[in-house]
Design a protein around this nucleic acid. Sequence first.
DNA 1: GGCGGTTACGTAAGGCGTAAGAATT
DNA 2: AATTCTTACGCCTTACGTAACCGCC
Lengths: 287, 287
Amino acid sequence: MDLSLNQLRGFVAVAEESHFGRAAERLNVTQPPLTRQIQAVEKAVGVSLFDRTGRGVRLTAAGEVFLSHCRRVLALLEVAPEASRRAAEGQTGTLRLAFTAVGAYAVLAEFLTEVNTRLPGVSIALAELVSEDQFEALGNLRVDIGLVRPPIPPGFESVLVHSEDLVLAVPVDHELEGTVALAEVTEDYIGYSPEGSRYLHDICAAMIGMDRYVVSQLASQVPTMLALVRAGFGCSLVPRSIMAMGVEGVRYCELAASDAHSVTLHACWSPDNPNPALQRLAETLKK
Amino acid sequence: MDLSLNQLRGFVAVAEESHFGRAAERLNVTQPPLTRQIQAVEKAVGVSLFDRTGRGVRLTAAGEVFLSHCRRVLALLEVAPEASRRAAEGQTGTLRLAFTAVGAYAVLAEFLTEVNTRLPGVSIALAELVSEDQFEALGNLRVDIGLVRPPIPPGFESVLVHSEDLVLAVPVDHELEGTVALAEVTEDYIGYSPEGSRYLHDICAAMIGMDRYVVSQLASQVPTMLALVRAGFGCSLVPRSIMAMGVEGVRYCELAASDAHSVTLHACWSPDNPNPALQRLAETLKK
DNA sequence: GGCGGTTACGTAAGGCGTAAGAATT
DNA sequence: AATTCTTACGCCTTACGTAACCGCC
């Protein structure tokens, strides 16, 4: 023998009314079904849940406990469909967001507040991944959306999230000042790793030329690069937003208009991803 | 249309197996019922809970949310009978305990640990009531057990919880010392209220005689009485356990054996009270 | 063509309502 | 005698299983 929700509802009604007749009226049924339901529940639970007092009934201690369980069960079932529908519409749920360390600094905070505004109620799970891993995770649906730099492989959708130009990071005691042309620079360049930061590596290499770009160190983490700049190993081209990091011992020079080059960051996702929260976000992002 | 527990169980099985066939096998049914159950659930919830992928199925975001609700519902129902049975056996639940302010000091802490030891898992709700209100509350079943002083009205069960003799509280600078006889005392006595502390009032009045007992003040709260003793309004007979309060400006004299009188405190309850925790406690107390 | 999910139909079980019964006040 | 819960019985709804059917790799 097994419990049914009807039996539970009957039990709750009788418990709240302390009276089979009134409970039956409330449920729009006759008394006999209620009697049978309560009997079945008591048999299933194994203890008596009511004291029959002659003029009405009264919950036993076991009945009190069972009642609180029933209330929670019924309340959960009450809200479950609504909660599921909200999840289906992307108004709730979880969005798994990946970003690159270098890209994160410029826009992550802003992007998070943006998402929070557009998708209130959706919680966000963060993961720092290099671009290569991001595309794999996006394809496997282990991540819903990524903040990546170009090039974006075929089969993904994306929108431009941020664009900024590059500035020249030099040691504080460097002789160059103000707006500089790349031709004026005589030092080596600290380069980006062609694996970890393919996009920035390629752009910088194109701007400078590989002959001067291949240097003592190839780094992919911007803090590491700035530390090398500070230590006098050379200078480096970094996204403007990095200036906000305020690294001691390093200052930044604007590039002449002819040398200026902007780098972009894109939000990227798989169109196959069924996460409604993503779908909702994608719709608003594409506008 | 309404949800049923069978449908929920079917949904959970399919969700966990990602496969109608395996889920059916696990539930010892054939596939068609599962199809119908899932369809009914999806219709009731109003959204699609699975993506049918051709080789198996996959939960949608809404399905994930609904699944977690179902799991909680089923888990609650799983434990509900056991929890109710434990409550019926008095192994869990709530015991409402009343006590008098004057009686509480001697034994309440000890009695609480006693109850806690005998009835682990039972939580205790405390209420301070004067004896008169206690008996009413015990009769109305608003309280399960009370710590009262005699006399105990008919229709209640009780056991002796504590017995102690009375000592004489005098101001620190009083001339009497050591063991004293009541005849040696020349001061007035601070008396107990015949309403609030009937038992102590009657005993003290009998020990001392009403002529010397009727004094400037009638108090029922022991701290008040001790304050009056300290202020020099007289002396007072108090239960020995009050000595542990360590009231400044008051000291205590033993009474001569001929004058010694013990006062008792009883745990008292209604035999009609259906609270299983009380029944269990009563059984162990009576031994 | 096989695997996996869906639809159709017959049968059996479960639950409701009406009516009559038992117990307590 | 009246109120309240319980039991008995007939009917209907619901839900299962078997069998046949679609859709996709």
